[in-house]
Design a protein around this nucleic acid. Structure first.
Length: 319
DNA sequence: AAGGATTCCAACCGCGGGAGG
DNA sequence: CCCTCCCGCGGTTGGAATCCT
C-alpha cells in the first residue's frame, strides 16, 4: 500500500493561501532557510502540509521569482528547449532564471502547445517534414471541454471512440536519454533581469550534471539542423575552453552578441560549471569533423527514412 | 445584460528516486 | 540489499477571470 497523501491529515488547510499564511511562511524561511518541508509547517505554526508549503514558496513566494509576462525571447527559448527536452519543465525552468517550472508548464499548456500544434498542422498541410505529434495536453483540454459541455449519447460514443483511437495512436515520448560527455547544455544566462547566485547555478549544475539529454530523433534533428543553420560548429581551433558569451542574446554589449547557442569543442567539459553560458558543449577539439560527419550521416538517414538505421545511429551516439 | 464557453494559473496528487539507517 | 523518509517532478484539477454570443 502506498503512503497516504500528506495533505490527508484532518485539520490541515487546503486551497488558496492567505496573506497571513504567506507572511508566516516567508518569515520562517527567512529565519531558518529552505528545506525540511515536512517539519516546517509544524515549526512555523502553519496548518498546511509540507508539500503545500514547498510549492507555495517555490512557485510564488521566493524572492527571485520574476513575475509578469513571458517575453518573446523567453518564449522562443521555451519552445527551443521544449523541442530538445520535452516536458521536462524543471530543466527548462532551470534555463530561465526567475521562472518556475509550474509557470512554464502553464504557459506552454495555455499558449505554446496550441501554437506548436497549429504550426505543425500548417507544415503538415504544406507537406513539410516535421514533428506532428498531437499534443496530449490539447487532447486533455479538449476532453475536459467536452466533459464540461452537454453531450448527446452519440457524442459520448464519439468521445469513447476518440479516446480509443487516442490510446492506439498515443505517441510514446520516451524518457530522456542521458548521453555522457557527448553534448552538454549550459544554463542560459541571457536574461538579465534577475541575478542568479553562483551557488544556485552550481547546485543546479550539480543536480543536472553537464550531460545533454536527447529525447528523440526529432530532438537530434532539431539540434543538428540548428547547429548547421547557425554555423554553430566552430572553425576556430582555439575553442578549447569555455567561450565568454556575456552579452549574447540579451543585446547588452559584447561584439554583436551571438544570440544563439553554439556547439564547440572542449577538452574538459567540467570546466563549464564555473561559468553559466548558453552554449552547447562537445568534448574535444577534434569533434568538429566528427560532428560534421555525424551531421552528414544523419542527413543521409533522414533522406532514406530508414527508421531502424536511424535508431541504431542514435544508439551509436550514446555511450 | 446575462449566461455559457473558454482561458489561465495556483494548487493538488501521485509517483519515482536519492539518501540514510 | 531492503526499507522508510523526504524531496522534487510532471500531470491534472478547480475555480476565478475573461471572452463570446
Amino acid at each position: 500500500m502506498g503512503r497516504a497523501p500528506c495533505c490527508s491529515k484532518v485539520g490541515l488547510r487546503r486551497g488558496p493561501w492567505t496573506n497571513k499564511e504567506d507572511t508566516v511562511l516567508v518569515k520562517y524561511i527567512q529565519t531558518h532557510g529552505e528545506g525540511h518541508w515536512r517539519s516546517l509547517p509544524k515549526k512555523a505554526g502553519l496548518l498546511r502540509c509540507g508539500k503545500s508549503c514547498r510549492l507555495r514558496w517555490m512557485n510564488y513566494l521566493r524572492p527571485d521569482i520574476k513575475r509578469g509576462n513571458i517575453t518573446p525571447d523567453e518564449e522562443d527559448l521555451i519552445m527551443r528547449l521544449h523541442a530538445l527536452l520535452g516536458n521536462r519543465w524543471s530543466l527548462i525552468a532551470g534555463r530561465l532564471p526567475g521562472r518556475t517550472d509550474n509557470e512554464i508548464k502553464n504557459y506552454w499548456n495555455s499558449h505554446l502547445s496550441k501554437r506548436v500544434a497549429t504550426d505543425s498542422n500548417e507544415n503538415h498541410s504544406k507537406g513539410l517534414r516535421g514533428p506532428k505529434k498531437r499534443s496530449n495536453n490539447n487532447l486533455i483540454a479538449a476532453n475536459k471541454k467536452k466533459r464540461r459541455s452537454e453531450k448527446s449519447p452519440q457524442e459520448d460514443r464519439e468521445e469513447e471512440e476518440e479516446v480509443a483511437t487516442t490510446k492506439k495512436i498515443k505517441v510514446h515520448q520516451p524518457k530522456a536519454i542521458r548521453v555522457s560527455h557527448i553534448f552538454s547544455i549550459a544554463r542560459n544566462n541571457s536574461f538579465e533581469t534577475v541575478e542568479v547566485a553562483d551557488e544556485e547555478v552550481m547546485a543546479h549544475d550539480k543536480r543536472e550534471s553537464n550531460d545533454v539529454i536527447i529525447n528523440s530523433n526529432n530532438d537530434l534533428s532539431w539540434m543538428m539542423s540548428e547547429a548547421k543553420e547557425h554555423n554553430w560548429f566552430c572553425d576556430d581551433e582555439d575553442y578549447n575552453d569555455m567561450v565568454d558569451v556575456e552579452g549574447c542574446g540579451g543585446g547588452g554589449g559584447g561584439g554583436g552578441g551571438c544570440g544563439d547557442e553554439m556547439i564547440c569543442s572542449n577538452d574538459d567539459k567540467n570546466t563549464s560549471s564555473s561559468s553559466p553560458c548558453h552554449r552547447i558543449w562537445l568534448p574535444n577539439n577534434n569533434n568538429k569533423k566528427m560532428l560534421e560527419k555525424i551531421f552528414e550521416e544523419y542527413h543521409e538517414l533522414l533522406k532514406s527514412e530508414d527508421h531502424l538505421q536511424m535508431e541504431s545511429f542514435v544508439d551509436s551516439l550514446l555511450i
